[in-house]
Design a protein around this nucleic acid. Sequence first.
DNA 1: GTATGGATCCTT
DNA 2: AGGATCCATACG
Length: 189
Amino acid sequence: MKLSHDFYLYDNVVAIAKELIGKVLFSCIDNQITAGVIIETEAYNGTDDRACHAFGGRRTPRTEVMYHPGGVSYVYLCYGMHHLLNIVTGPKDVPQAVLIRALKPLQGIDIMRKRRKDKVPLSAGPGTVSQALGITTHHNGLSLHENMLWIEDHGILFESISAGPRIGVDYAGADALLPYRFSLSNDNS
DNA sequence: GTATGGATCCTT
DNA sequence: AGGATCCATACG
């Protein structure tokens, strides 16, 4: 079943980023259901996090959705060509989000391969995750309690989850070193 | 209005 | 190791 409102509203994006490892992300786009187990995430922790788009309270048309109550999508274009999928968390007006960086494909794998044009990896790396699921900026601001994009708890537990610095945020100075990236420690592929 | 650079991916 | 590729943002 879908994760509850409370799961997303908890005011601790780092804890949520870790808890999302092992949950199952679904999309139903163009009448095609695809899903995968979340195996890598990163937390972006509000106005005090230099790596966060909402650092310093920046509120623009792009970042607006991060200020919504948790439980909606935040999709934006990176490097002019990659759509990156984030999950907004925390209370209203607290701009926190979790970047989904990698999935273990679970359902609709043929569809995912087709969307990826048979390239590998199928869904490891934030740009490829969105592509495999059919996510674009058109899917920004979707509620995860509806039937286009949602996350379920299938009771999957992993023995050890490792934390480390986030990828590609060197510009964030000391904040780039924070252990806000979570992934599986050992290969369970 | 212009300028700048990025939460990346893919091929060499 | 480097090119692709273009929007969002910041600045004037």
